[in-house]
């Protein structure tokens, strides 16, 4: 293993100067950014782009809307899921509307972080679940992307291991483009251990360039945009 100073000094010598002691400046080139004019448009374009990627989605304005929407998506499926009490795995705390909606539907939620003692056991539970439910910290309209930060009361495997992933996001958390999201993330200081940007379901075109959905990650992805 090479000593850090030695390694860095060698690079400095290749660059023909001493290593700068302060962050070097540069003049960034401006790029034209995608902008939308109002929140309504943002929500609807986010949804369009999410759906274009193969996701399902809806904008809800009330608890009733939400309940109806969830029943429409999962009602029939739920009846067929063998391991019903453990079929839905979720964050410790979902956005309020989501919590109320699941309560109203009387669909039990397994809370991932508390469901097992060890990480390996939690993964097994998540892998056996039919649906993972999360919120999101931000969304990107242009690319139909959800941005989800890790947190002790959340868990990263929920949006990854079950075959279906459902996310609730407040419309106010949507942004036009990636740039705005990164600016906000930069202001957090030390970033969370994982920021996952998710744009649609798991996909691959590795066999004869033929698009196939769900090779590793979720096969079906759903988003509920909460009009706030």
């Amino acid at each position: 293993m090479t000593n850090t100073n030695e390694f860095i000094n060698q690079l400095a010598s290749k660059l023909g100067r001493a290593t700068p002691t302060e962050t070097p400046n540069y003049v960034a080139s401006n790029v034209p950014q995608y902008r939308l004019s109002n929140p309504k448009e943002r929500a609807s374009i986010f949804l369009d782009n999410w759906q274009a990627l193969g996701g399902k989605g809806a904008i809800v304005e009330s608890l009733e809307d939400t309940v109806q929407c969830l029943r429409g998506w999962f009602g029939d499926l739920l009846a067929a899921w063998p391991n019903k009490p453990q079929a839905i795995i979720a964050w410790d705390l979902l956005p309020t509307v989501a919590e109320y909606a699941f309560k109203a539907l009387e669909w039990p939620l397994v809370r991932y972080t508390q469901a097992a003692q060890t990480a390996v056991d939690r993964y097994s539970l998540a892998a056996l679940a039919e649906l993972g439910v999360t919120g999101a910290d931000r969304g990107i309209a242009l690319s139909g992307t959800l941005v989800i930060n890790s947190h002790p009361q959340r868990g990263r495997a929920i949006s990854l291991l079950p075959p279906r992933h459902l996310t609730f996001i407040e419309a106010s958390k949507l942004r036009d483009n990636l740039f705005e999201v990164l600016e906000e993330l930069a202001s957090l200081g030390i970033p969370p251990s994982a920021i996952e940007m998710i744009s649609g379901p798991s996909r691959t075109s590795d066999i004869e360039m033929d698009l196939s959905i769900g090779v590793h990650g979720p096969i079906e992805v759903y988003v509920v945009v909460i009009d706030d």
Binding site: S150, H151, G155, P192
Partner: peptide, 18 residues
């Protein structure tokens, strides 16, 4: 526009994370 999954990771996990 973006790949399906773009992960910005700052490991290791925090002690209290699941």
């Amino acid at each position: 526009r973006l790949s399906s999954y773009t992960s910005i990771l700052t490991p290791p996990k925090r002690a209290s994370e699941a």
